[in-house]
Design a protein around this nucleic acid. Structure first.
Lengths: 210, 210, 210, 210
DNA sequence: TATGAATGAGAATTCATTCAT
DNA sequence: CATGAATGAATTCTCATTCAT
């Protein structure tokens, strides 16, 4: 058959992207087969090649698109203040929110760098670096102003990002913890971690042993 | 053909283990081929089956062995005190030390759980859980004694472990940072993160902007 | 959408034919893909099917058209004499000329018979046979009249045709040898080959060592 | 099953070579599939890769081996005389003989140069050139000594080789013409072609109209 | 203990072809 | 007349695995 009636390139491409992200997150890029991807989308394996020149380039496109989305979203979300504490709070909120919303993309972006071809790797890592730099800038400013107590802004960046990104590993949308609480807890952890003076404590957010 | 019985085999098995860990860390488990593994070891692919029943079981064995080693090592290393701060300090030291020493094993253990068969997965995750529980216990005790300020011991466990394990991603043995400094910095970060009262500050370890 | 009916189609078809001959000559019929052909012509692969029912039939059409053209051209070119020497001279001139002019077509017609479907193969070989017979007739007449010294007219046909057709393999329009010289040399070679009494030698055409 | 009892690498490789030459001669290199090749040999397609790194390199190996064989054989066959006529006679004999004996190899070597990767192409063409040069040397010597009447040794080389190689196209081992007769006829054609003075005519070899 | 020959299943990818629009 | 989306079959090639020797 030549064409499923009403089929539409744009819709197909989006379906492939979504299914690919899911599959790669589930199984890993190497373990995902285009056969299975095609089956999930409901097309033939060969049809994928109308939209992506190769399996490898598909990964690259997905990662680049995700990282660019993150960077753009941060631009529209970032607060208009110079205060490092305020900015860090906003960053944590943004990061946790986007990393639970787009859990699979984040997971893939963190796990599958290895699978990129060298040139693609460099491109993706450069984008990632830009994202890391957002946090480094905040921390550096805070260290300078005395708001944060940290020996090294870059190392703290790695530490905080690792901590925050780890959320994706265990957090489930419908688990015992709500997203609001999640963000509150991680905000506290990060704030303590960078040595920020504690805000006036609100009732009920600390001291609970779980 | 006279050969000292058993000697060669043991050496070959160890060589396979080492090469496998390296290869999996470099390329990922799925991307590693037994052909390449065999080539690195200097044997034929078929020979690997003298030592491991399958590629998948090889991964399991490597991970189990690594996690058991970690648990055992902790048993011999853990300090003989009830003080949560002292125990946390020792744990951070132990974790960073072992995670830089056995970087590849740790990396593999964190990346390749996905590749395990379901039964093997359960076995490995159970071991991992026991390791996590070490930290959870410490944190819970500290929260109870007021030494730490944390809303949730389990979540803090995830956060701290993610932070600590992230070291392996960027730390290089011969980089600008020595291992002693590394441990000091991460100790500080963790201590701040859990809300431990700061110790008497030593000169030069805080406030440096980098 | 106003379009001069038929005009575009004819042009497209001719463009496809030309591009196809080039591509088949370059890569071989099996190695040519309709995608590449379409790209060269500047249309979509599917569009080729307006003009040719299948890739295989396209080859047939190209070959048949070429051979028919050759046969027709010979009819209008052949000299009006019974003299075998004169006719052979004209044939060599015609063959070399058409085989340098339509190099790619000739090359394809000689290389790609294998790729034809059985029925198409028979049709094309029959046309080829008619072309061969032109030469066989000339040689047979010459043997009969004593003008040529040859043991077997059919075998000599194969020999002479192979020799002449081989020109296409190495001759380049802008190489060191002009087309006039080329024809002169091959005329001499063929004449000697069939044992024709040498014509009055013209200065400078023999004995040169190169 | 791991291994067909008694299977033997050397024998398998030779079987693949033979079957490959046949298949390529029949269908052309591009049209031959490794599946079919494997089926003819009686192995699985993948097994071919124990002996050849790729389909393309297989072609190269076959051609190189054939051309080297030709060159070696000529070395042991060439007559020990300076006389160009004698050497040409020996060359025709050798060429026709080897080109009927190894018909398929020759055919493939003449048809499939196109299918070689650039580097392999250069290697093969260089070998071919060495073979052509054998004939060019003979013709040049003959022109110099006045034994042959030819305007250009190189062009005559192409002409004679094309003629001789064409034999493979139509000659069949069990056709109406014996190999001895075949060689005699082609020797005569070539000798006439190069303008060698005719030898004392033997009865029955000329003037027959067929 | 180790090899080397082989398997068979499956991988990514390509291609001629179809047809609703 | 031409496109663009899709198919389905086939292709080259890879890989974990087996087992006689």
């Amino acid at each position: 058959m030549a064409r499923t009636t009403g089929s539409d390139g744009t819709r197909t491409e989006e379906a492939i992207r979504q299914a690919a992200i899911s599959l790669i997150a589930e199984r890993g890029f190497e373990a995902m087969t285009l056969r299975e991807l095609a089956r999930r989308v409901g097309v033939q394996p060969g049809s994928i090649y109308r939209y992506f020149p190769s399996k490898g380039r598909m990964l690259t496109e997905l990662l680049v698109e995700h990282l660019q989305y993150l960077l753009e979203q941060w631009e529209v979300t970032r607060p208009d203040t110079a205060d490092p504490v305020e900015r860090l709070r906003a960053f944590v909120d943004f990061h946790v929110r986007s990393h639970t919303l787009r859990r699979r993309e984040v997971f893939v972006a963190n796990m599958e760098l290895r699978s990129l071809a060298p040139a693609d790797y460099r491109q993706v890592v450069a984008l990632r670096r830009r994202y890391e730099d957002i946090l480094t800038d905040i921390l550096r400013d805070g260290i300078g102003s005395g708001a944060f107590v940290l020996p090294d802004a870059r190392i703290a960046t790695f530490a905080v990002l690792a901590m925050l990104t780890g959320v994706g590993t265990w957090f489930r949308e419908n688990g015992r913890l709500g997203k609001r609480e999640l963000i509150e807890q991680y905000t506290q952890l990060v704030m303590q971690c960078v040595g920020a003076a504690p805000p006036k404590p609100r009732e009920g957010t600390r001291g609970r042993v779980n």
